[in-house]
Design a protein around this nucleic acid. Structure first.
Length: 871
RNA sequence: GGGAGCUUAGCUCAGUUGGGAGAGCAACUGCCCUACAAGCAGUGGGUCACAGGUUCGAGCCCUGUAGCUCCCACCA
């Protein structure tokens, strides 16, 4: 083994080997139980960020764990075409060359988009490999691959034929920058400072005027009524009369509608059915005309009269000025309100009436809600089920058409001759109605999430009845961030239920955002993003992975910090060096099996500890508590194995007794083997690299069995007894520090104890670890001589002669402190034991433990008192 | 308006069905002892936001309060 830990020397090499030898490949094996994860496909908009790194690391850890446990594991990778997001990026990119979509035309644009896809898909895959992701690359899927497109068509046509997809004019969210419709989920609201403009609408006959307050005066060209609440005594007598729309001169009716809130604004609201969702509803109720006043690019159309052609905000400015001059503007009141923004380009969206395709949600939502209620799908942590219900229960129809080019084109054709609308899985050549060949396909593409919703089964071969689909579906766990529950998780659930008749996955493991060290979201605009590749370059993939997993709790945000990665890197170094210690000591010797050697107390202690670690880690991994599993392994490896057991093994290793040497080596190797296997899912590279040098090991660690808890290897009594030895060692070390004696200075140790056999059996360990030159048994202090530090322990009392270093006054103070502690413990235990409630209701085990403690501290108190007398 | 989360050591955070408060980093002291100074040994440091309640027992369960964060809805 190399002397220093240098991940660069082996990470790429190992990955290549895993890949080339087919370690990641999933092949149906009916003798095994399948375990499937489909990777949330990263968008091909760019490269992976820290959030992806966390997402992939969680999945890789789970899949590696399951693979070692003997499941037939499939982790299916892929990338997402990310329709609007990618199109925005490509357009931006084109802009640099002075090109627009119109310049390239649809075909030219798509050609460019596919080239873009190749470039970024490659980049993403190589990043995933750098991270160590053990996904089956032979199944790499892109959401616009042939098979996904086939699934999309199948689903679209089936839903269309079931009347669950329809086309209609509705209010949708329009992004004037991307020039496309958006779904409700794609709009993000943010509070903005705006104004309330109070405008006078005079009555037709001029005998009254209504004061209307609006935040978007430019939409008034589309007003087709003003509404007041029918219960509003100020205005209800005016219902049915007409007012003249300022700046337009058109007469519009006053209608009575509950939508008008008497408490809000002036109580009079202008109704613009074409540009406001609520107004649209009001319009339907009162049969009002719908007048669009804006073009697709956010400029005003011909209905805006002299303002036609102006940008919406320019129009607003000028219109307000004009209204002021004409005396219609009463006042301008600052007003903060929520404004919707396009989630991709941040432009302010306009609610606009437009003819679009929709998925009818009601019928699809019900079974999806039930599936979660019936625990067919479980959210981890559970609280996210609430978020899911809340959305599902109030979900509106899903606008799925996008006026973009990059995506799945809507499989609907229109006959130029008879007007027939044809929805088909295969491109039709002639109109089935009139036989005309004059067909044109719908220009729009589908919402990118339409294909993502099918991901768990489109990747496995749907709509064909493939063997994969039968074996690997439903998948087992979906790992993703809580921010896409609506976009994706919910839609996969109802899609899986509808098209496969089965839920797409059993568990949904949610994770949070990876924030920067100050707790801010990582973002381009803030410039606080950290590139995972840079971190890997500096510290290695294992350190990054471990730092992302350490301390994560399902659903919680985490913070990334260099300091954390560095701490993890230290851990890697620790593992490296501990392994090097074991392996170098084993060189040239045949390492025996545990069953062939005689185990001492320390051996039994560490082996027992390993068993409990195996149990805890397995339990927590199964519960998706990866952070806890990590911590357990970290503590065991560093504290128990390195700080204690390796040190304890040294007297045997460096001694002359060959049997002891054999035993120590056997245990060191056994425990290290366990540690490496337990840690492999978290930190795959270093564990495999070391494993190959481990005596008796061959091949890659990733295909070995995950350690199993073995009750025959828990030596409860011996292990517990050995902790007494550790107590002694700690006490001697502490005693030295207390009096200012350097740790390396050897001292004599006198012990008054009942456990003479235990001490004798571990004499070498105590001498080595505590820095002791001789150990003698005594029955009282006088036998240990003058100027001693006394340590009263449960196993016995230690006397350590320290000569002039002993300050009697300090020693008294210290002992008095310890007395105080003992007394407090006695009081505590006694209090519990004399509590009727506790005695009758607490579990017996606990009561027994308290009794034992009471006894122990009483003994200690006596001994401390005796010691104080001796001073 | 509705919902969720958070509040634990100086900092960042764990704390897995209620049973003596933990880690990393930082601080202090002493150590290069043949795996590791990217290290070792030792030490200090917390009214677990606040107030009630349930319980023999609460960081954990319930109610309320405060502060912070997020999500959803959206009043023109």
């Amino acid at each position: 083994m190399e002397k220093t830990y240098d991940p660069k020397r082996f990470e790429d090499r190992l990955y290549k080997e895993w890949e080339e030898t087919g370690c990641f490949k999933a092949v149906r094996d009916d003798k095994k139980v399948p375990f499937t994860i489909v990777m949330p496909p990263p968008n091909i908009t760019g490269q992976l960020h820290m959030g992806h790194a966390m997402d992939e690391t969680l999945q890789d850890t789970i899949i590696r764990f399951k693979r070692m446990q003997g499941y037939c594991t499939l982790w299916l990778p892929g990338t997402d075409h990310a329709s609007i997001a990618t199109e925005v990026k490509i357009v931006e990119d084109m802009k640099k060359e002075g090109l627009t979509k119109a310049d390239l035309g649809r075909e030219g644009f798509l050609k460019r988009a596919w080239a873009w896809k190749d470039k970024y898909e490659n980049r993403i895959c190589s990043q995933l490999k750098k991270l160590g992701s053990s996904c089956d690359w032979s199944r790499l899927t892109f959401t616009m691959d042939e098979k996904c497109s086939k699934a999309v068509r199948e689903v679209f046509v089936n839903l269309y034929n079931s009347h669950l997809i329809y086309r209609g004019s509705r209010i949708i969210n329009w992004c004037p920058c991307c020039k496309t419709a958006l779904s409700d989920a794609e709009v993000e609201y943010a509070e903005e400072e705006g104004n309330f403009w109070h405008i006078k609408y005079f009555s037709e006959d001029g005998d009254f005027a209504l004061e209307v307050a609006t935040t978007r005066p430019e939409t008034m060209f589309g007003d087709t009524a003003v509404a007041v609440n029918p219960a509003d005594k100020r205005y209800n007598r005016l219902i049915g009369k007409k007012v003249i729309l300022p700046a337009v001169g058109r007469a519009i009716p006053i209608v009575g509608d509950e939508h008008a809130d008497m408490e809000f604004g002036t109580g009079v609201v202008k109704i613009t059915p074409a540009h406001d969702p609520n107004d649209f509803e009001v319009g339907l109720r009162h049969n009002l005309p719908v007048i669009r006043v804006m073009n697709d690019d956010g400029t005003m159309n011909e209905n805006a009269g002299k303002y036609a052609g102006m940008d919406r905000y320019e129009c607003r400015k000028l219109l307000v000025k004009d209204l002021k001059e004409s005396g219609h503007l009463i006042k301008t009141v600052p007003h903060a309100h929520n404004v919707g923004h396009c989630y991709r380009c941040r432009s302010t969206v306009e609610p606009i009436v437009s003819k679009q395709w929709f998925v009818k949600m009601e019928e699809l939502a019900r079974p999806a809600i039930n599936a979660v209620m019936d625990k067919k799908v479980t959210f981890v942590p559970e609280r996210f089920a609430k978020t899911y219900y809340n959305w599902m229960e109030n979900v509106k129809d899903w606008c799925i058409s996008r006026q973009l080019w990059w995506g799945h084109r809507i499989p609907v054709w229109y006959c130029g001759d008879c007007g027939k609308e044809i929805c088909a899985k295969n491109d039709p050549e002639v109109c089935p109605e009139c036989g005309s060949a004059n067909l044109t396909q719908d220009e729009d593409v589908l919402d990118t999430w339409f294909s993502s919703a099918l991901w768990p089964f489109s990747t496995l071969g749907y709509p064909d009845d493939t063997s994969d689909l039968e074996y690997f579906y439903p998948t087992d766990v979906l790992v993703t961030g809580y921010d896409i529950i609506f976009f994706w998780v919910a839609r996969m659930i109802f899609s899986g239920l509808r098209h496969m008749r089965k839920v797409p996955f059993r568990d949904v493991l949610m994770h949070g955002l990876v924030r920067d060290e100050k707790g801010r979201k990582m973002s381009k605009s803030l410039g606080n993003g950290v590139d995972p590749l840079d971190v890997i370059e500096k510290y290695g993939a294992d350190s990054l992975r471990f730092s992302l997993l350490q301390g994560v709790a399902p659903g919680n945000d985490t913070r990334y910090s260099d300091a954390k990665v560095e701490a993890c890197s230290n851990f890697m170094n620790k593992i490296w060096n501990a392994s090097r210690f074991v392996i170098t000591n084993a060189e040239g010797r045949k390492v025996k099996a545990l069953s062939e050697v005689k185990l001492c107390g320390a051996d039994k202690w560490i082996i027992s500890r390993l068993q409990s670690v195996i149990r805890d880690v397995t339990l927590n991994l199964n519960k998706f508590e990866l952070g806890i599993a990590c911590q357990t392994l970290y503590d065991f490896t560093w504290s128990d194995f390195c700080d204690w057991y390796i040190e304890l093994s040294k007297p045997a290793l460096y001694g002359a007794d060959e049997d002891k040497k054999d035993a120590a080596l056997a245990v060191l190797t056994f425990v290290l083997d366990g540690i490496l296997k337990l840690l492999h899912p978290f930190i795959p590279f270093i564990t495999d690299e070391i494993y190959r040098s481990l005596p008796g090991a061959s091949g890659t660690i990733m295909l070995k069995d995950y350690p199993r808890y073995n009750s025959r290897l828990t030596f409860k009594k011996d292990a517990q007894a050995f902790e007494g030895v550790m107590e002694i060692i700690k006490a001697v070390r502490a005693a030295k520090t207390e009096v200012g004696c350097p740790p390396s200075k050897k001292v004599s140790l006198f012990i008054s104890t009942e456990a003479k056999r235990l001490v004798s059996a571990n004499r070498d360990s105590i001498m080595k670890l505590a820095g002791v030159k001789e150990i003698e048994f005594v029955s009282c202090q006088s036998e240990a001589g003058e100027k001693v530090v006394a340590k009263v322990l449960a196993v016995g009392t230690l006397y350590i002669p320290m000569g002039d270093l002993v300050d009697t006054e300090k020693e008294r103070e210290r002992l008095e402190g310890e007395l105080e502690k003992a007394v407090a413990e006695i009081r505590r235990a006694d209090g519990k034991l004399s509590n009727q409630g506790f005695m009758s209701k607490a579990p017996k085990k606990l009561v027994d433990e308290e009794r034992a403690k009471l006894e122990k501290y009483i003994t200690m108190r006596e001994k401390i008192l005796e010691q104080l007398k001796n001073l």
